[in-house]
Every structure is written in structure tokens, then in C-alpha cells.
Amino acid sequence: MSTDDESGTTEIPSYCGHCGLPAHTPDAHGVDSDHDDSNGGCSTRLAMEPPRYCSQCRRRMKVQVDPFGWSAACSRHGTVTQ
């Protein structure tokens, strides 16, 4: 995965890329009471689909899925690709 984040820094995710809820720790999925993980687990889901929410600001991203990759763009924090 690569990013063209304007700041060039790697930040600890503040929000879950799948559901957009606060992710208080990097592996909060399933233990964070804010975070409904009842439908299969967000981290599992993120292995099967691209993130929809920017992990830094929770904006919904513009996501393009290609046959062999994807890109997800936040208007503020740049584009993540895989």
C-alpha cells in the first residue's frame, strides 16, 4: 500500500477505514465499545475491500476498484493505492 499523504508522515489511524468509527487503538477492532464489530469484523472486512473512510479525518473517500488494485482518495489527506 502506498500513500501520497501531503504531510509525508505515518499517523496512527484515528478512524476505522471500514466503518468510520473512532479506532482508539490501532487494533481496536472488536474491543472498542464505540465500534460495532458484530458483522464479521472490520479488520477482516478491510482485507476483502478497500477502505471507505479516511483513517485520519473520517471523510468518505472516492474509491476506484480496478481488477487488480484500488485507490482511495481523501480530499484533504491524499490518495492511498494498492
Binding site: A47, M48, E49, P50, V63, V65, D66, P67, F68, G69, W70
Partner: peptide, 13 residues
């Protein structure tokens, strides 16, 4: 279908 779907990801090709 090889690779990804329209909004979700498939198995590696």
C-alpha cells in the same frame, strides 16, 4: 471473475 469486483476485492488472481 478474476481479480476484484466492482466495489469489493476478490481473491488474488
Amino acid at each position: 471473475i478474476v481479480g476484484n469486483y466492482l466495489t469489493t476485492l476478490g481473491r488474488p488472481a
